[in-house]
């Protein structure tokens, strides 16, 4: 086994025993179960989409930020071993993102199986939900890595993580609406698409909601997206953009980590 995998394996052992992650698992188990118990297939899954879009980024970015700040002294210890920084960075990222992802998938998928809801909804809808949840986990773990590599003060870093989530998950919609209202007389579809690409949560929402037949929930950017690309192409474009949202922060985080003084 190579060094990256060894470090990842070791970190996973620690992460899976953390109370945060156990709480996260319980949360999704209970919420998914409740939604399926009291709602019907498609509708319940739609509610779940909203929960996932809201909660996954928040929990991931906060947990990943706190965890990485707490590992600082331990990372120093690992750096004093015959290990390359690239291997260490890769191992630490995988060791954090992988268990959080698996917990998310398991705690959503298990209640769905138990309720046999997979018969009631299209399997692709479920796959899309889990896939975007995974992508958001990867994105926000990468963003957390970038924050921790760049900001030494842990209170500032954690604050930044929360503000960023607030911006992307909550305030962004307001800004889009504002832009739409102000420029109502202009053709703003294309700039709006650009605006959507700037927000991974919005991208994830569009990917998911294009699966359902619910234009009302698409939001302005989603409606534009559908109008522009229709179903399939829209999903493809959004998926590519979402992947860049994993790669870009991760690359920047690695550059910062590689040059960092511990």
């Amino acid at each position: 086994m190579n060094t990256t995998a060894k470090i990842a394996r070791f970190e996973i052992k620690d992460v899976v025993r953390s109370r945060w992650l156990i709480g996260y698992a319980l949360f999704f188990l209970v919420v998914t179960d409740a939604l399926l118990r009291f709602g019907s297939g498609e509708k319940a899954l739609l509610s779940l989409v909203n929960v996932v879009l809201f909660v996954t980024p928040l929990v991931t970015v906060v947990f990943a930020t706190v965890y990485q700040y707490n590992s600082r002294e331990f990372i120093e210890l690992l750096l004093a071993q015959p290990v390359r920084r690239r291997q260490l960075f890769g191992g630490l990222y995988v060791g954090l993102a992988l268990p959080v992802s698996l917990v998310f998938v398991a705690s959503v998928a298990v209640p769905v199986m138990i309720h046999h809801a997979d018969n009631a909804v299209k399997i692709w809808t479920l796959v899309a939900l889990l896939g975007t949840g995974l992508a958001l986990t990867a994105v926000f773990t990468a963003i957390a890595s970038l924050i921790v590599a760049k900001v030494d003060d842990r209170m500032k870093g954690l604050g930044l993580a929360i503000v960023l989530w607030l911006l992307l998950a909550v305030l962004y919609d307001g800004v889009v609406l504002l832009v739409v209202t102000i420029f109502a007389d202009h053709a703003i579809e294309k700039p709006l698409l650009g605006l959507m690409v700037l927000n991974p949560i919005d991208l994830a929402r569009v990917v998911l909601l294009l699966q359902f037949d619910v234009s009302a929930l698409l939001g302005y950017t989603g409606a534009v997206m559908r109008q522009f690309f229709g179903g399939g192409a829209g999903v493809a474009v959004a998926s590519v953009a979402l992947t860049s949202w994993i790669a870009a922060p991760l690359l920047l985080a690695f550059r910062a980590f590689d040059r960092k003084d511990f």
Partner: peptide, 26 residues
């Protein structure tokens, strides 16, 4: 061999886990 000033390790693992990992890495 390096002994840093501040000792902080992953919360949920034991000293044995730690020693095993270092052996594994080395």
């Amino acid at each position: 061999g390096y002994m840093p000033q501040i000792a902080r390790f992953p919360d949920n693992l034991s000293a044995t886990d730690l020693f095993d990992m270092l052996k594994d890495l080395r």
